[in-house]
Design a protein around this nucleic acid. Sequence first.
DNA 1: GCCAACGTTGGC
DNA 2: GCCAACGTTGGC
Length: 155
Amino acid sequence: MAIWLFKSEPFKFSLEDLKNSPDQTTTWDGIRNYQARNLIRDEIKVGDTVLFYHSRCEPPGVVGIAEVTSEAYPDYTAWDPKSDYYDKKSKESAPTWLMVDVRYEKDLPQMVSLKQMKENPELEGLMVTRRGARLSIQPVSEAHYEIILKMGGLS
DNA sequence: GCCAACGTTGGC
DNA sequence: GCCAACGTTGGC
């Protein structure tokens, strides 16, 4: 079972929004990057753990834990011309973009900021701490995950 | 198939 | 709001 870091801009969709969603579950739609799409298609499985990360805010960081609750399926927002995520390349017969469902699990008692993660030498190699790591879905190792939980007040 | 131009992400 | 880093597009 793998661990992932999912980025979200809290003014668009926050951990709080996830908690308040029906069934505390949402479709993780709008992924429009091939590397992230390939992770969704090939690597991400039901039951995988998600570190919910708030980006483009002060401070950015991991705020909670969620769980993947579906296999990959077509991101239908790509077919909706009114959607911000509309992409005419994606056909219903051959969907370009995929998504999974994600369910709220818990808040971290204390958020773990990007700054803290960068300052912790035990997290060396963690993708999100690297400069220019724009990928919105990133793999996280079990060891790094345990450290982040501890930093967030869980263990 | 190269690569310059452009658009977006996201920390600061 | 700035701008570095990166991904994508499109002319050639």
